[in-house]
């Protein structure tokens, strides 16, 4: 972990109160229409060279946020500032040079690879679009990229369906880093990999960061992976950030009750260490993002909740250097 964050370093990407709403339900009968606040007023800063880990419940809007940041979704509200420039409403054409600098690795390796394209074409595609060089330069680069992600030239002519899940994910990573972008938004890039390959890919992400000064936003469910790669983490719950801080601090002393529950639920790879007692069971149901609870979104499930929590929504407040939490009664 080569650098500290926060006030130091230059801010590469900033999200200012970004919200994204989706309409679901009946299209014809307005009464049956509902709005899902997938992302609800998220403000974040990513400093050049750091890795920001994003964790949170499935469905809390991590992918949606990631997609908003690369403008794969149009945001409903808020601004996205990249290198000091507001890119929220840039036209497609104006966005093109920026697209090159921000790449995304998707959660789902199968669906993001065109089944009729050979691996060679998949990896070469961004190189061709952004006019990387001559044919033979591109070919050489593709082979090099495959090698970097642990595949070989043997695989060049194969189709995605001939690969295992993990191998496909590596193809996705090769494609994302092909243009040596500034920022890579990785949406669960290692969840399909076995632990040994996962370790290789995590190391690969770190190598590339050191070598190319890449900045990552790393979305993952596996908290031990986040702990390994991220300098800083943001914990999301129901579309909002509820806690941010340096990785060690958040893991060792979670400030938000949800973070605490999350960390307690990590399965430990050791059958001897009893897990049942350790885990904080969240009571109640996972809330419905189409009808979120009042006040603190977490209050129906929070064991520390008090009367105010039901009525007043806690804002994300600074409680220390690099540390913010949205809770009336933080644990640290």
């Amino acid at each position: 972990m080569n650098m500290l964050t926060g006030a130091t370093g230059r801010v590469l990407l900033e999200a200012r109160s970004v919200s994204k709403r989706f309409n679901v339900g009946s299209r014809i009968v307005p009464a049956l229409r509902k709005t899902v606040h997938a992302v609800d007023g998220v403000s974040l800063q990513v400093v050049r060279g750091e890795t920001l880990g994003i964790v949170g419940e499935s469905g809390c809007g991590k992918s949606t946020l990631g997609r908003c940041l690369v403008r794969l979704h149009e945001v409903s509200e808020g601004e996205i500032i990249f290198e000091g420039r507001d890119i929220t409403r840039l036209s497609r054409r104006a966005l093109r040079p920026i697209r090159r600098k921000i790449q995304m690795v998707f959660q789902d390796p199968a669906a993001s690879l065109n089944p009729r394209h050979r691996v060679r074409d998949v990896v070469a595609e961004p190189l061709i679009i952004h006019e990387f060089g001559t044919h033979s330069e591109i070919d050489a680069r593709v082979v090099e990229l495959l090698r970097v992600v642990g595949l070989s030239a043997d695989h060049l002519e194969r189709f995605p369906h001939e690969f295992s899940g993990g191998q496909r994910q590596r193809i996705g990573i090769a494609r994302a880093i092909a243009l040596e972008p500034d920022l890579v938004i990785a949406d669960e890039p290692v969840s399909a990999l076995d632990v040994s390959v996962q370790a290789q890919v995590v190391n690969l992400f770190q190598d590339l960061q050191e070598r190319l000064g890449l900045t990552y936003i790393f979305i993952a469910h596996d908290l031990s992976v986040i702990r390994q790669v991220a300098n800083r983490v943001a914990v999301m719950y129901l579309g909002s950030v509820v806690e941010t801080g340096l990785t060690e601090a958040v893991f060792d002393h979670p400030a938000h009750p949800y973070t605490q529950a999350l960390i307690s639920a990590v399965p430990v790879p050791d059958p001897d260490r009893a897990h049942r007692g350790r885990r904080i069971l969240l009571k109640g149901d996972v809330p419905n993002p189409a009808a979120p609870p009042s006040g603190c979104r977490f209050h129906p499930r929070c064991s520390y909740a008090q009367a105010t929590c039901r009525d007043v929504r806690p804002a994300l407040t600074r409680i220390g250097p690099h540390r913010e939490v949205a809770c009336h009664f933080p644990l640290v």
Partner: peptide
């Protein structure tokens, strides 16, 4: 449970 967060995984 690969795609799930740890609380849902549990």
């Amino acid at each position: 449970t690969t795609a799930l967060d740890v609380t849902v995984q549990a």
